[in-house]
């Protein structure tokens, strides 16, 4: 039996009829055609499907669309207007080479968005634990950490750290 739900996605309200078993990530990707939210595993491990649900970062592969009824969703597409300007995190990732293949990037950025919303001056250690639910196979995380530190500085209005690669 289909269930009628109302969800606000990136500021736009949608009324949808969905199977109760429909996963939120499939609702976002298949019904709303917002393909920036990715699927990288089937065990709630990788975080590629991370979105903001009422401002909290969650893994949309382990939430039913019906559970989002009445709630507000932000996906990567909703962070900034198309073509920019970027959010501090998007800018941080670009300036610091915080992405390679780009597949984990939307989830990583949405997770970091909540992290910085709670604490815009995190330590490197807090960042590493804070993104521990997001797997990246390309970057080795150094530059993701650097990107988040950069975004934090930008949000605090402080001088931005160098974005040149640091070589020993």
């Amino acid at each position: 039996m289909l269930k009628k739900i109302t969800v606000t996605v990136n500021g736009t309200q949608h009324v949808l009829e969905v199977e109760p078993r429909l996963l939120l990530v499939h609702m976002i990707r298949e019904l709303l055609n917002l393909t920036g939210t990715h699927i990288g595993c089937d065990t709630t491990s990788c975080g590629a499907c991370t979105i903001l649900l009422d401002g909290k970062s969650v893994k949309s592969c382990t939430i039913l669309a019906v559970q989002a009824n009445g709630k507000s969703i932000t996906t990567i597409e909703g962070l900034a207007p198309e073509g920019g300007p970027f959010t501090p995190l998007q800018e941080g990732f670009k300036e610091n080479h915080g992405l390679h293949c780009g597949f984990c990037t939307p989830g990583m950025i949405l997770r970091a968005t909540e992290l910085l919303a709670h604490n815009n001056n995190p330590t490197e250690e807090e960042i590493r634990w804070g993104i521990s639910g997001n797997l990246c196979r390309c970057t080795g995380y150094n530059n993701i950490v650097k990107a988040i530190l950069y975004a934090g500085a930008k949000m605090r209005g402080e001088a931005l750290p160098s974005t040149e690669p640091e070589f020993v």
Binding site: T44, G47, S57, V58, K59, R111, E114, L115, W129, G133
Partner: peptide, 12 residues
């Protein structure tokens, strides 16, 4: 709590 799953899971 720090050791349970990950931040997104802990949000839910």
């Amino acid at each position: 709590t720090k050791l349970i799953a990950d931040p997104q899971v802990r949000n839910v």
